[in-house]
């Protein structure tokens, strides 16, 4: 498998506190990878380390074989990385459409404003509303759309389903195949194991900053996962 993104021995620290202890993970083009794990397992830290918001060693993160760990966050979007952050973090001063436009970052590709509105038709109706006036699910759509606007090769999604109703979550995950069709890979951090197994090709389970289990989603049993998730033996 030629990996689009690969991490080797990725470690991360918050001051004296070590959050990640050598994560090895690989993502191929067009694939959906889910990272599951309990609170504090290091899932979000892992994504932050990928996009440069937490310091990482250069060789620990490779994109197409090039070492990109520790690069300034503003340069990563140009390399093809986009993040849908936990809690969405839309810009409250910007309208829905402005939030989408600011995601462009000078890129060209299939994801244009029209393509996003086609993906999430409700956003076209609300295009002039302040982004934070929308419902939680709609805000999540804006956050995904904002990330897609840069036409990323790798889309990182942090806790998409947090605080959303099950039907809304289903609608959001339903767009994944359309995103991957053009070769974009997705890494999704998810607490809902069922949702993760349904959406992902492969699964990684984190426990206390380490990978405790990994493999194709279809091949893993519930028992294996709950052992890796909760650390029960």
């Amino acid at each position: 498998m030629s990996a689009l993104l690969e991490t080797r021995e990725l470690t991360a620290f918050y001051g004296d506190f070590q959050a990640l202890y050598g994560i090895d993970l690989a993502v191929a083009a067009g694939e959906v990878v889910a990272i599951i794990g309990a609170n504090g397992a290091g899932k979000s830290t892992f994504l932050k380390a990928l996009v440069g918001l937490v310091a990482a060693k250069a060789e620990a993160v490779r994109l197409d074989g090039a070492a990109i760990g520790g690069i300034a966050p503003h340069r990563l979007v140009g390399l093809g990385l986009a993040l849908v952050p936990e809690g969405r973090r839309l810009f409250p001063s910007l309208t829905v459409e402005e939030n989408l436009r600011i995601g462009t970052a000078g890129s060209r590709g299939q994801w244009t404003l029209e393509a996003i509105y086609d993906l999430f038709p409700i956003l076209a109706e609300r295009r002039s509303s302040p982004a934070t006036a929308l419902s939680g699910g709609q805000q999540q759509m804006v956050a995904i759309g904002r990330a897609l606007m840069s036409n990323p090769r790798l889309l990182l999604c942090d806790e998409l389903s947090l605080g959303l109703a099950p039907t809304v979550i289903r609608d959001i995950y339903a767009v994944f195949p359309r995103i991957c069709k053009a070769g974009t890979a997705i890494v999704v951090v998810e607490q809902d194991i069922g949702q993760a197994m349904a959406a992902a090709d492969r699964l990684y389970c984190f426990q206390e900053g380490r990978v405790s289990l990994s493999g194709p989603a279809a091949s893993l049993t519930r028992e294996q996962i709950s052992t890796a998730y909760f650390g029960l033996h």
Binding site: V51, G52, L53, A72, P73, H74, R75, L76, V77, G78, A82, L83, P85, R89, F91, P92, S93, L94, E98, R101, I102, G103, A105, G106, R146, S150
Partner: peptide, 24 residues
């Protein structure tokens, strides 16, 4: 303008705006 949008965005959230390709 795009610059004005970026100014408002950086005022809202200086961390996320970096992921949009702007050096805060």
């Amino acid at each position: 303008s795009a610059l004005g949008r970026a100014f408002r965005a950086v005022s809202d959230d200086q961390e996320i705006v970096q992921l949009m390709g702007y050096d805060n």
